[in-house]
């Protein structure tokens, strides 16, 4: 196995991880600030992808499609927060799980109703397609490289937002003591809607960006949602830094496991069996990583100690 192939796979893992971060950041913010577990976050990812595919189909512009994805998901998020989610803040986690599961059913079947069961395709724009040559002679798709850069930019932006702005101060205060900041005159329900819409927008953006590599279809959000949960469990609930590190760890483990485990099994089994067994175990690799972190630190790498 050549170093170039390995470098390529590391980049793939990084790209996957950065997209997972966009999902996990929203989830962990929403949980940290409102104490809400939101299963419908995957639906917002799907809404973003469909909005992007529809707008790209109508206008042909990829940038407009991204803006549409962000706006549609944030709008859907704000709407859902106003109508359903805000009734759930004082309920137990079971009610939150059930209500957001119901939202998944409504979103998924509603989208199938509107767009049909066939997958849509979102094309990579011409100015981002094709390979680039990186130092060391590695040929790598420009689009995937752009995803890595964009994801890292969003991470930096989010960090600046949370640590440097007035809204960020309110969000952090809301995580610690919601009665106190309400008493200080911050409109807490407006803040909650804002945080939810922000998380939703990030999910929608991720959906549109990934939709251009894969296909845009109903049910695309939930596998990513569950991976984002794994990321949060590893990184620690409520921690943006944890979400970033967890996401990159999961992305790398998944991608590299898929490459190396079959090779590893080839050392002591015939190639066909090794490939089958290796890829079966590779699909479990990230969950084994999660289990290992749980044994070591039950509240995740950066979670609050209890």
């Amino acid at each position: 196995m050549s170093p170039i192939l390995i470098a390529e796979q590391v980049l793939n893992g990084l790209q996957f991880g950065v997209m997972l971060f966009l999902m996990a950041a929203g989830l962990t913010l929403i949980f940290g600030v409102m104490g809400l577990i939101n299963l419908a976050h995957g639906s917002l990812y799907m809404v973003g992808a469909f909005a992007a595919a529809a707008v790209a189909g109508a206008t042909g512009s990829f940038l407009l499609a991204l803006v549409a994805a962000l706006a549609a998901a944030a709008l859907a998020g704000a709407l859902v927060e106003l109508v359903v989610i805000r009734r759930l803040y004082n309920r137990d986690h079971l009610d939150q799980v059930l209500a957001t599961f119901a939202l998944i059913l409504i979103f998924s079947e509603g989208t199938r109703w509107l767009f049909g069961s066939f997958p849509l395709y979102l094309d990579i724009p011409a100015w981002l397609s094709g390979p680039v040559t990186l130092p060391g002679g590695i040929q790598y798709p420009l689009y995937r490289l752009a995803l890595i850069v964009l994801g890292l930019l969003v991470a930096v932006g989010l960090w600046l937002l949370i640590s440097r702005t007035r809204i960020g101060i309110q969000i952090r205060a809301g995580e610690n003591d919601r009665e106190m900041i309400a008493a200080l005159g911050v409109d807490i329900s407006k803040l909650y809607t804002l945080v939810f819409a922000l998380g939703a927008g990030l999910a929608g953006l991720a959906g549109a960006l990934v939709g251009a590599i894969q296909s845009v279809q109903v049910g695309m959000g939930e596998p990513v949602l569950i991976l984002a949960f794994v990321v949060i469990v590893i990184g620690g609930i409520g921690s943006i830094k944890g979400a970033l590190i967890g996401a990159v760890l999961v992305g790398l483990t998944d991608t590299l496991g898929g490459i190396f485990l079959p090779e590893l099994f080839k050392l002591f089994a015939d190639p066909a069996t090794a490939t089958a067994t290796g890829s079966a175990f590779a699909s479990m690799a990230i969950y084994i990583l999660m289990a290992a972190v749980l044994v070591w630190r039950p509240t995740g790498l950066f979670g609050a100690r209890t």
């Binding site: 359903v84 059930l98 209500a99 119901a102 939202l103 059913l105 409504i106 079947e109 199938r112 109703w113």
Partner: peptide
């Protein structure tokens, strides 16, 4: 698309 209605009932 009956699951839309199931979702609403559940909600």
């Amino acid at each position: 698309y009956w699951q839309v209605f199931l979702g609403i009932v559940l909600l």
